[in-house]
Design a protein around this nucleic acid. Sequence first.
DNA 1: CTGCTTGCAAATAGTTTGCACGTTC
DNA 2: GAACGTGCAAACTATTTGCAAGCAG
Lengths: 147, 147
Amino acid sequence: MTTTKSPDARVAAILDQLAARGMRRTSARQAILEALFAAESHVTAEDIAVEVHRRFPSVDVSTVYRTLDTLEQLGIIDHTHLAHGPAIFHLADDDHQHLVCERCGRVEEVAPEKLEPFLEALRAEFDFDVDRRHFALVGICAACRDR
Amino acid sequence: MTTTKSPDARVAAILDQLAARGMRRTSARQAILEALFAAESHVTAEDIAVEVHRRFPSVDVSTVYRTLDTLEQLGIIDHTHLAHGPAIFHLADDDHQHLVCERCGRVEEVAPEKLEPFLEALRAEFDFDVDRRHFALVGICAACRDR
DNA sequence: CTGCTTGCAAATAGTTTGCACGTTC
DNA sequence: GAACGTGCAAACTATTTGCAAGCAG
């Protein structure tokens, strides 16, 4: 399955996917994808731009944004808004809810299954589907509360 | 109690409160407060600026932001971030959670008591206190889901 | 007359866009 | 050589800030 392939193989596969849609294989796109696969988690567009710059100094942030946008349209990545500040990006198959502490900025990633009961209850009570992929839950973490 | 006083009386009381702290009573501050009390709910700084401009065309948005900031420091108002776009402001005693539909933009206000069970459960499970005043819950409303 | 306030302009952060040139197929 | 992609500069949205002039107490 897809998730067991090596990062390089996955990058190549995505580039193939773009080509199949009449899009081009470019070094910028390849470098951006590689940066995405190399990243731990919650990277900003700026982070990716910096990383890509190390190999291709001419690549502009606007290209990074445009590429991230393209990848998101294809369902390959997602972006999430934490509290304030820039959006973060990650591979779409790495699905989770973000709990952000507005005091210390720490971001905790929670598995979908662990959160589902709450979202389900909200759905039942308010007929409202929380979009856990696109927005974080913001609050105070235990460490900051007790300090 | 405070909430049963007329808007004008409450504006006067807040101006007194400022004066008691060595701050000045200015027409800009009065007009901004009046706009806040006149507003239905979820008004942006821009909304307030427009309203204030009708009577005092010279008042700058920066003054609106500075005044809102002052009022927030005094605990008189709060601001909340909906999905994208500008923050919204309202009187601090009008406490509620916002459910924002990211598709149609509709904002539903939910009484704290109705949401508390969920926040309580999240607290128990993740040791995390969601800040319901400062950030909305973003998702899809029933009408948009079924469309 | 002291110093809090304000208007104005400019800076900021994050992201988007117009356009002419470059590159890929 | 079309069509797609990119760099660059500029625009944009929401908000903040520096500074000198303006008022309130």
